[in-house]
Design a protein around this nucleic acid. Sequence first.
DNA 1: TCTGGGGTCCTAGGACCC
DNA 2: TCTGGGGTCCTAGGACCC
Length: 420
Amino acid sequence: MCAVALVDCRNFYVSCERVFNPKLMNRPTVVLSNNDGCIIARSEEAKTAGVRMGAPYHEEKERLARMGGAVLSSNYALYGDMSTRVMSLLGEFSPKVEIYSIDEAFLDFGNLAGIDLMDHTRWMRERALRWTGIPVGVGIGPTKVIAKAANKLAKRNGGVFALLEEGAIRTALAGMAVEDIWGIGGRWGKRLRRMGIETALALREAEPTRIRQGFGVVVQRILYELRGVSCLSIENAPPAKKEICVSRSFRKRVGAMEELSQAAASYATRAAEKLRRDGSRACGLSVFIHTNHFREGEPQYNGSGSVRFAHPTSDTGLLIRAALAALRRIHRPGYLYHKAGVLLFDIAPARRVQEEMFDRLDFSRSDALMSTLDALNTRMGRATVRYGAEGFEAAWRMKGEMRSPRYTTRWEELAKVRAV
DNA sequence: TCTGGGGTCCTAGGACCC
DNA sequence: TCTGGGGTCCTAGGACCC
């Protein structure tokens, strides 16, 4: 019997904060989205107290204050680095690891005869906690979808839970609501319930062709996965991205073209960095801007426009120029904008592009410039060298007033320890 | 006053071609 | 009254994930 495990970091962002700030232990703690808008991570104490996931912060502010809760802006430099540590540790426990998100990974144990999976994964869990400070949970099953379900049960069962025997799987699936299955969201959940399919077990036992007709192959695959037939394989290396998007809402609304231009240039710069890190080039770029649709009384506008390049590129200067040209076309004066973004599409690996061009195109100057830029900014800190189009003082830039220090990625922000 | 950001996959339908 | 059939490519939109 093949076994896969889903490992997830419990309350990941909060757990990262607690590693470096033990005063947050046992205290209701939440982490906010960009601009301190919504609640995107909660400690167990905050969950128990009824703080809602995804809720706008201002709606939960008072409740949190009443119970002496801690509130933090998000600190992605810290979370990203802690994630890397956990993932590399997992690699020592399985030859095949798929990093599924910043706080989750699938592990393939293949046909591990003679290994006690429970022992193996309990040991992994202890090591993760001791070496990184992050508590993880482990669910084990014959397929990804069942491993996901097992992971849910691990929360109440000592952190590791296996669903490998038919009896255990049936019992677990019978107690699981259909919309709690991985891959079944609210919409499909409702439609399945209307058909009388209310539990994971009921979906497992439904007629596959009927499910296919009503919901397409995606849900049919989930059905088979629930039966223990693997349809979703574990991917060792992530495929290069097909699209790269950088977008943000502004700290305060922006009307002036100058500020929108700075934002577009900054986002294009970030997107270009991601593109080069992937070793890719893009053939197209689009820019979008929109007003705040939550303000129903105000005039609304959504604009987007794209540019196609004659040759695929990853040059920040060219991408900024294209972004500004697109922005000029879509900008309408008289509106106060709330959010803007830059999307790169038609992405291809840089090497293949060069071969196809038979050296008719010379990328070498631009490539040399970009790698120097990247090297400097990696070594000396982001935006050490940058394009003037990004601007210098930016009132539109995001809020993050309650952000903790970047303990693990900036020398100046290292934690200080005082021995008494 | 305040309301996140970044992705993927699939499907249906239109445009276009021979 | 009759006015092909089959294939590909692209795009928009819907669904999902964390």
